[in-house]
Simulated scan of single mutants.
Amino acid sequence: MSKHDSPNEFDAVLGNQGIATQGSMILGGVEGIKQRLNSHSLQVKLAALEEAINYGTAGLQVLLAYLDDRDLQIQNRVYELLESRSEPFVREHLAKNGIRRYTRHKNRFELFELLGREGTPETVDIMMESLECDPHSSPYKLIDYTLGLVRTSVGEKRIEHYLFNGTQTQRNYAALYFKRLGEMGILTEAVKMGCIDRVQAFSK
């Protein structure tokens, strides 16, 4: 290699130097991925998304930022890359912020079932908020089922919060939850406070 071919102090090419073109700057790691995601080439973007999954939490955060990309191919690929991840913040983000598209996703049922079985206040929030997120997604039967999976004391307490403080739809589903548990005392209190009516509370 001649001295003219060797990198000097003013070169800023890192990562895959074999594809660098004259005058380009290619960075490695997460910053390099972010740079390639600004490319006009769909293939370059897709390749960058594939690489991001290997960078732990920082890479996952990059992927989550592209759930709302205008290109449906980008959105779909991000979902494919994230759907099997077990990190709670990924699952919660998919359910809460991606609910409009996630209602069409093949693993929606498995995701919400897992949230119901976890039964934390945060997962109850996700399920309840999904009832209000998109009226065209019809998640009602799914949420009815997955709320019924909540068996933790903290989860039950959070559902009680929605019975008295939620929207009318959220109150209705919270009432159904307690009706199935046979908790007539709390339903009677909710009727007295005007949160639900007697039909919702006591009908068979």
Rank of each mutant, 00 (worst) to 15 (best):
K3T: 14
D5F: 15
D5Q: 15
D11A: 14
G15Q: 06
G15N: 12
N16P: 06
Q17C: 13
I19C: 15
T21D: 08
Q22T: 12
G23N: 14
S24F: 08
I26H: 09
G29S: 09
V30R: 02
V30M: 07
G32V: 11
S39V: 02
H40D: 13
H40K: 14
Q43P: 02
K45E: 00
E50M: 12
G56T: 06
G56H: 11
T57W: 06
Q61D: 09
Q61I: 06
V62C: 05
L63W: 00
L64D: 05
Y66T: 00
D71Y: 02
Q73N: 11
Q73K: 05
Q75D: 02
V78H: 00
Y79S: 01
E83H: 07
S84N: 10
E87A: 15
P88V: 07
F89Q: 04
V90D: 02
E92N: 12
R100S: 07
Y102A: 03
T103P: 01
K106F: 10
E110D: 10
E110A: 12
E113F: 12
G119F: 06
T120I: 10
E122Y: 09
D125L: 11
D125K: 04
S130F: 12
L131F: 07
I143T: 05
Y145Q: 08
G148R: 08
L149Q: 14
G166N: 01
Q170D: 06
L176A: 10
I186F: 00
T188A: 14
V191I: 08
K192M: 14
G194C: 04
A201H: 08
F202Y: 14
S203L: 14
S203G: 14
